[in-house]
Design a protein around this nucleic acid. Structure first.
Lengths: 159, 159
DNA sequence: TAAGATTGATTGTTCAATCTTA
DNA sequence: TAAGATTGAACAATCAATCTTA
């Protein structure tokens, strides 16, 4: 169904950045739908993944990872704690800092969610083949790194 | 600065979908920052681009393009109309349908915004080279198409 | 009936400001 | 002073429902 309902791609719809956005929108639409089916909000999933990757970090650090505000993370963490998926423990050295940890139930929920999302990974890899898949990943990472460089330069990081 | 503050990429941080998300996050962070500097919200920019690509379409159609609700588009369109960037005209054949059009000021604002965002396009293209850039775009589009196929199959489009 | 527009209520996020602690 | 947490107000998007028109 390639290009069935797509509008004609002219002008602003040809560059790399547009292609990245388009792919990301598609991926998000898919994963959001899958996650919804198992009653997990996309933002919850993101936080669970982040905590799982770096257990014990503060809410502020998670917020920076996710590019959202600390308040948003606090709100998410509170909800996930209510559902016993996340645990907030006081930091050993800094008393008012809260460490974020996954509970066993949280790890289980994350595992299920990852499995539900994993099918897309396989689908794309099968369609593109292993060679083009790793080529795509490598190019994407180069583009992302370049973009981050551009961002710090733009913010005044360098002349 | 490749990998300076990145966390270790293991497990869920290796696949295509993750690479797509990471790149999209970076691109969005950059463009949002640029747009902000010229007092334009990212969502406003998206709507302007959509209307410019297909002038005269309804708010409902724009909503489908942007993967948001019709109410969200109505709200955005109202704000942009207040700023004289967008014009809502009654559809010639369907009286209660509103056509979305850009005003001259809207076209000017969009042109400026596109220029501000365009620098990233150039930066990536220069870094990757024309060959790898078009390769990346082609792979990205194949991945996006595959994802959309998977989405319709998932929704019950096929067995 | 079907598609688009619109209204009101709810949720989630950001912004702005304050408080605590090392 | 600096970094994290927390509070309340403002904003933006969704959900749910209703209304209009072809």
């Amino acid at each position: 169904m390639t290009g069935n309902g797509e509008w004609v791609e002219t002008g602003a719809f040809e560059g790399v950045t547009w292609a990245v956005r388009r792919a990301a929108m598609a991926v998000l639409a898919f994963t959001d739908h899958r996650l919804r089916a198992m009653d997990m909000a996309p933002s919850h999933y993101s936080l669970l993944v982040t905590i799982d990757a770096e257990p014990g970090r503060s809410a502020a650090e998670a917020a920076r990872r996710l590019n959202v505000t600390p308040q948003a993370v606090a709100s998410l963490a509170a909800k996930l704690e209510d559902r016993d998926l996340v645990e907030r423990r006081p930091h050993p050295r800094h008393r008012h800092v809260q460490e974020l940890h996954l509970t066993d139930a949280g790890r289980d929920a994350l595992r299920s969610a990852k499995a539900a999302v994993e099918v897309l990974e396989q689908r794309i890899c099968r369609e593109l083949g292993p060679e083009d898949t790793s080529r795509l990943i490598a190019l994407l990472n180069r583009a992302a790194d370049t973009t981050k460089d551009a961002a710090v330069a733009d913010a005044g990081g360098a002349a």
